[in-house]
Nucleic acid binder design. Structure first.
Lengths: 208, 208
DNA sequence: TCATCTAGTTAACAACTGTTCTCTGGATTT
DNA sequence: AAATCCAGAGAACAGTTGTTAACTAGATGA
């Protein structure tokens, strides 16, 4: 199935990725709606007009960045939520996952947090869609849990959204703590753990 | 105590407010980091250089907007959280408050949601500080509740942050639903109500 | 009344923006 | 080997940006 790319398409994809990387870097200190096309091409070392060979506009590049940041995350979510150990362990594992992801891809996380409510509508829409997919997947995993007996689909989705939003808040807090001390990060982890725990307790006593 | 302003200072404040209003309007379709000083003065009908009589920079104006958007909200939060009726009623009242505020000041709400993780650090800091104050105040009100017996300060603050974040998420959802039908808004209200309820149940069964 | 103060104006600056059109040289296809 | 394709370069465009300096006219205070 895998077709070895010609040296032409390979070079094109390389440039495209360089544009994405440069944009992501520049977006650490501004938002997408103020990012200039020339700014990005300058950072890559390529002519401004070359940009149009890859993206129609900056908004278009932003949508591609959403795919890059969230697209590959779906399997990870699935497996993390579905590990059927104790609730405590599941929470600890989820928070570890978030902390690790923030550590490994801080710029991606910042981009999502920033542009989720940012000034570029197509990007906001793309993020909303991806998060809705996450919620649907979490709901699917929750449904398998015996504790979800008697729960309506609506209630399961409401809980799934609560979890997803909570994950995003936690990721954002880890991001802020990245420039802090190890103790700061530990504090974030502990608060997030207790919040998740409280939600799980609410779930357990929910009048299904 | 109130000192009648001279006609000079009065006119100055009027222009300053016009700048803030114009900026808020322009920010409905972009983020602060892309807002131009000339863009704002043009919208007001004033020379670009007049801007400097009121703000050092756009970031400075942004911080003033944070104060305008959140500063006057503290008393409302206090009284809403502290009404000592049943938990159900308290939740309904809180969500009504949020829906009403989003209806009355959509641009302010959008601004806060957008710039909380936006590209302008001083503004992010100002928002974070105000939200931390909210959390502290909510914590203070929660502490008065007999149900909080045995709770540590840390746990109370963790719960307060959970409530504050949940309020922001709800406000943002109401904002999206503003352009939708009445049924959309009703659905947001119902989901938010159940989420708050679940958190309250978790609180009730928390191992203090 | 007269001197001072100051919110807002005007003009000019170098630097930057997105977009268009034309061109080129190396990869691809025939 | 020849014809085609196409990612990227180069130059030019009108329009925009933040910031400076010197100004004016009306309010303020002595």
């Amino acid at each position: 199935m895998s077709h070895t790319l010609g040296i032409r398409q390979a070079q094109k994809q390389k440039t495209r990725q360089a544009l994405l990387d440069a944009a992501l870097g520049l977006l650490e200190e501004q938002s997408l709606s103020s990012l200039g096309l020339r700014e990005v091409t300058r950072a890559v070392g390529v002519a401004p007009t070359a940009f149009y060979r890859h993206f129609r506009s900056i908004a278009d590049l932003g949508v591609a960045l959403v795919e890059e940041a969230l697209g590959s995350l779906h399997p990870m979510i699935r497996t993390t939520v579905s590990t059927a150990d104790s609730s405590e362990e599941r929470i600890a594992r989820a928070i570890e996952l978030i902390a690790g992801h923030v550590d490994g891809y801080p710029a991606h996380v910042r981009f999502i947090a920033r542009e989720r409510h940012g000034g570029v509508q197509p990007v906001r829409d793309a993020i909303r869609d991806q998060l809705a997919r996450f919620a649907e997947e979490v709901k699917g995993e929750l449904a398998k849990d015996p504790e979800s007996e008697g729960w309506s689909d609506d209630d399961l989705l409401m809980l799934a959204h609560l979890y997803v939003d909570q994950m995003l808040i936690t990721a954002s807090l880890f991001l802020e703590a990245l420039e802090g001390t190890e103790a700061d990060r530990e504090r974030v982890a502990q608060v997030a753990t207790r919040q998740m725990k409280l939600i799980s307790i609410g779930r357990h006593h929910w009048p299904a």
